[in-house]
């Protein structure tokens, strides 16, 4: 397994409150009348400090919806959401865009790299959008830190799944945003590659970011500082991993 290099620092603009997440009585319902689906129902969740938090649940439990609400991609039907001290609940479309630009950043299950850009350029995209100075320089540095400097000029279709996901992580890191949201980051990867990805994400938490990883894989939840278990839109468990926290090297799935 490749050694995980030291993670880049969180953008100084984040500040101490930059990693805080507060959800109070948050609901997200779809449809109306007899066809209402309560994807998230009366969720209360508080993350005070940088941590590696795993949101666990089976398909349809509401974990992705919860992630989208936290990431300002969606608005709650009821309740309040505060992110890094800012109230998302009544935020306008433009304010949500700003939050996604400077506060949260995403890592997707299917990577979602831009096919027309090289690996380096995909990473630079993250720094550019966040308005960071010397975006190209930051991109080169971050790409090196995920171990892909030699693949900088390759396009997405020329990279393996694991390499693409590492580029996606680098893109997220290049933003310098304090909150990292990862939706099934290992879903399309084999075990060995998935472990590498978890190590990268784990390192971000250690560097001072709040990392939320959504997964249906209970094995992965064992490496979290905190596991929030969802079922049918409700939090059914919230605390340290059951059976104790495990090292990433001990995981098997």
């Amino acid at each position: 397994m490749t050694a995980v290099p030291a993670p880049p620092a969180v953008d100084a603009r984040a500040g101490a409150a930059g990693t805080r997440i507060d959800l109070d009585g948050v609901c997200r319902w779809f449809g109306a009348g007899d066809t209402v689906v309560k994807a998230v129902d009366d969720v209360n969740l508080h993350v005070d400090e940088a941590a590696f938090v795993v949101v666990l649940g089976p398909s349809g439990s509401g974990k992705t919806t919860l992630l989208n609400l936290i990431g300002a991609l969606d608005a709650p039907t009821a309740g309040t959401i505060r992110l890094a001290g800012r109230d998302l609940t009544t935020a306008s479309r433009a304010e949500r865009t700003l939050i996604r630009r400077h506060t949260v950043t995403f890592i997707f299950q299917s990577f979602n790299l831009f096919p027309a850009l090289t690996a380096l350029e995909n990473v630079q995209f993250g720094a550019d959008v966040a308005g960071r100075a010397d975006a190209a320089g930051i991109a080169g540095e971050v790409l090196g830190q995920v171990g892909l400097s030699s693949r900088a000029s390759h396009f997405a279709h020329q990279l393996s799944g694991g390499e693409q996901q590492r580029v996606a992580i680098a893109r997220a890191l290049a933003t310098g945003n304090p909150i990292l949201l990862a939706d099934e980051p290992t879903g399309e990867l084999d075990f060995r590659t998935g472990v590498q990805i978890l190590e990268l994400l784990r390192a971000q938490a250690q560097a001072g970011r709040t990392v939320l990883v959504v997964t249906h894989n209970r094995e992965i939840s064992r490496v979290g500082d905190r596991v929030i278990e969802l079922s049918s839109g409700h939090i059914v468990a919230d605390g340290p991993p059951g059976g104790g926290k495990a090292a990433i090297a001990d995981l098997r799935w």
């Binding site: 350029e121 995209f125 396009f155 997405a156």
Partner: peptide
Amino acid sequence: HLAARGSGLAPLLRWLRLPGRG
């Protein structure tokens, strides 16, 4: 990602560097 198509002829413009955002 396994269904991803190539980049067509985009690599031909790899040299292109415009001012401003990447």
